[in-house]
Design a protein around this nucleic acid. Structure first.
Length: 420
RNA sequence: GUGGGUGUAGCUCAACGGUUAGAGCACCGGGCUGUGGACCCGGGGGUUGAGGGUUCGAAUCCCUUCACUCACCCCA
């Protein structure tokens, strides 16, 4: 192994994966733009406190997964593990709540969590993140799912599942919590070690446990869903009916809970079985108290994040290039002087032209042209210079023809002679 | 943080503890003196991830460490 390499969980991304990223971003920007969402950029680095307060100090992310360090002045800073906290901070700092009644925002960029990498999970990963402020009713939540559904359909993702649930408002959550803890305590002896600890700190998370025995027990446990207050319940009903109107197929998963503390009412996950152990590639929900909790005016919010790496695993490979690729094989010193003028002329006409440098043999240049899958090769050597022409070779069938060697008109000549 | 699997040429992989660590692909050159893909011939390329140990002898066995990978945990 080499000495210099990227940090664990940090990757260089190129080739097809980057093309998929751009494809996903393009589709997202198109639909988001049509629906009135505005793109923004936020810092990668924030004060640690922002994440502790918004994500929750009893969550795994804050407890053991953040890249946190002290800067030169001793202040604790953290590489953002998710985007919501930063967007909320930006929303408050810019005073958007006073300038516009509704803010529809999105951002795309890298996030950082100090976890052990595995399939679909890295320490630096990319999210496409959407946040909306100022809309309290669940029509918004249905709209968000619809946007994701539009994207997935457009991208041709073959199989996925929308799972939705309500985790209730603050009121129903607190009432339920005691009922749940009572149940867990009665079954304490049968719970795994982790869940016994969760019971006090964050009892809802026991629903997430994959331990067979715990999962078995939770099948009989009281459900938050059944303890929703009348308002939350009717809100959820209209949410489901709106999703139906939008045409987004969903399944209700009453055990779905989220790992971040700020969620209220509507929450969802989009999962696929083609992802290995990390099945969720998009998730989000409503957070009606978050803005107020970190010091802003009471403002309802809702949003989601899409994991780019995970979605890219599901997106079919993008189609190849749509324009023909030309290659200039210049043989000899004199012919090489035409490289720069021809490059200028072709690029001016938006025709893709590449070449190799150095006095390589024609054979070697032809080999290279084939390797980069050039569609046509322009051959220019001493013989062509003498007769004032250039050979245009079709690499598919090997047919060749002479074109006049005139830098200004050559791109047009080429275009004419390859036209069907 | 825990566990399993894997580290040999640029890539994919061979090699029972025993000659000078090989093959395919890729690359370069030649056959074809100016034409890619097919074929044939030749060539360059390795600290066998790193460090230690056992042994007459280690890619091979043992220990340590690093990396990759999958899973647990958690999450997008």
């Amino acid at each position: 192994m080499q000495k210099l390499q990227a940090l664990r969980g940090f990757r260089d991304i190129f080739g097809e994966e980057v093309e998929k990223f751009r494809l996903i971003e393009g589709v997202a920007r198109r639909y988001f733009g049509l629906l009135g969402y505005r793109e923004m950029e936020i810092p990668v680095l924030e004060k640690t406190d922002l994440f502790v307060r918004s994500i929750g100090d009893a969550t795994d992310i804050v407890e053991k997964e953040m890249f946190t360090f002290n800067d030169r002045s001793g202040e604790s800073l953290t590489m953002r593990p998710e985007a919501t906290a930063g967007i909320v901070r930006a929303y408050l700092q810019a005073g958007l709540y006073a300038k516009e009644r509704i803010s529809r925002l999105f951002t795309i960029g890298p996030m950082f969590r100090h976890e052990r990498p595995q399939k679909g999970r890295f320490r630096e990963f990319h999210q496409l993140d959407v946040e909306v402020f100022g809309i309290p009713d669940s029509s918004l939540d249905a709209e968000l799912l619809w946007m994701i559904w539009l994207m997935l359909t457009d991208l041709g993702v073959p199989s996925y599942r929308f799972e939705v649930n309500s985790v209730g408002c603050k009121g129903c959550r607190e009432a339920f919590r005691s009922a749940l803890v009572d149940y867990l305590r009665s079954q304490e002896d049968y719970l795994c070690e982790d869940c016994r600890a969760r019971m006090d700190r964050n009892p809802l998370r026991v629903f997430d446990c994959k331990n067979d025995q715990c999962a078995q027990l939770m099948r009989a446990s009281p459900l938050l869903f059944d303890h929703l207050c009348p308002e939350c319940r009717s809100e959820f009903e209209s949410y489901l009916s709106l999703l139906d109107t939008f045409g987004v197929p969903v399944t209700v998963n009453k055990r779905l809970v989220r790992g971040l503390d700020y969620y209220t009412r509507a929450v969802f996950e989009v999962t696929s079985d083609d992802l290995g152990a990390q099945k969720a590639f998009a998730a989000g929900g409503r957070y009606d108290n978050l803005v107020q909790e970190i010091g802003g005016p009471s403002t309802p919010g809702s949003g989601f994040a899409i994991g780019m790496e995970r979605l890219a695993l599901l997106v079919p490979a993008p189609a190849g290039r749509d324009r023909p690729q030309f290659f200039l094989a210049a043989v000899g010193e004199k012919a090489s002087r035409f490289i720069v003028p021809l490059l200028k002329a072709f690029i001016q006409e938006e025709m893709a032209l590449s070449y190799t440098s150095g006095g390589r043999s024609l054979k070697s240049q032809m080999k290279y042209a084939a390797a980069i899958k050039a569609d046509y090769v322009l051959i220019l050597g001493d013989q062509e210079l003498e007769r004032g022409s250039v050979i245009l070779r079709d690499m598919k069938d090997g047919s060749q023809r002479d074109l006049p060697l005139n830098v200004e008109s050559l791109p047009q000549e080429v275009r004419r002679s390859i036209a069907p």
